[in-house]
């Protein structure tokens, strides 16, 4: 894949470049601020963008705003954040599928990180487990109606896993996973449709509800 990276800390930017190259991706550009990111995307037309939230010149949420802009054109974006902010996660998820929001710490788990990148590029939605954990510990209605197993399944959905992957992770059959998911949808009042988007809606139900 062709990737554009935006990260203002040089050490980290170079680390990300070598990590992605190690996994066989091509880094088209690695830049240090949001404006340069938008310019690099126009120039290189990458398959996916990896960006930090906080970047020059204001060191506020420039990276996130740039990511939201790129998402309007449907470009897959993986946003790395120094810490979990529900607001940011919700804003990103509302832009549809093919988006990821991970704690920066996760790049240390190189394999999982590379895997998350692939999934976002393929159009999945990846939310940091920490976001999900916070939501599950806080919400009561209607999330409180979910069984512990269903919560586990939902947190894995939020991480962008497919049913087969969830089944492997929880060491159950795929049919059992499908049953849990049906239970989640029912309890969250998500009517059955042909649209796979319901999985994202389920996650969104936490973030914005």
């Amino acid at each position: 894949m062709r990737v554009v990276i935006a990260e203002d800390a040089v050490l980290l930017r170079e680390g990300l470049v070598s990590l992605l190259e190690r996994f066989g991706h091509q880094v088209a550009a690695a830049v240090g601020d949001a404006d340069a990111l938008l310019a690099a995307v126009r120039e290189h037309a990458p398959d996916i963008v990896v960006t930090d939230v906080r970047m020059p010149p204001g060191f506020a949420d420039e990276g996130l705003r740039a990511a939201l802009e790129l998402r309007r054109d449907g470009l897959p974006v993986l946003v790395l954040s120094q810490y979990v902010e529900q607001t940011y996660a919700a804003e990103l998820l509302e832009t549809g599928t093919g988006v990821g929001y991970l704690l920066k710490d996760r790049v240390g788990d190189v394999k999982e990180f590379a895997d998350a990148l692939d999934r976002v590029a393929a159009g999945a939605t990846v939310v940091d487990p920490e976001v999900v954990r916070q939501l599950l510990s806080r919400r009561r209605d209607p999330i409180s109606r979910l069984t512990p197993r269903e919560r586990e399944v939902l947190s894995l959905i939020a991480e962008g896993r497919a049913n087969a992957a969830i089944a492997r992770e929880l060491v159950v059959t795929e049919a059992a996973v499908a049953k849990h998911i049906a239970g989640i949808f029912a309890k969250l009042d998500l009517p059955p449709t042909q649209d796979g988007h319901r999985r994202v809606l389920a996650v969104l139900a936490y973030l914005t509800g």
């Binding site: 800390a9 050490l11 980290l12 680390g15 990300l16 070598s18 990590l19 190690r22 920066k104 710490d105 790049v107 240390g108 788990d109 190189v110 394999k111």
Partner: peptide, 11 residues
């Protein structure tokens, strides 16, 4: 630096 360190260790 710590993030970079975990990344290096991971690699």
């Amino acid at each position: 630096r710590l993030v970079a360190l975990t990344m290096t260790l991971g690699l």
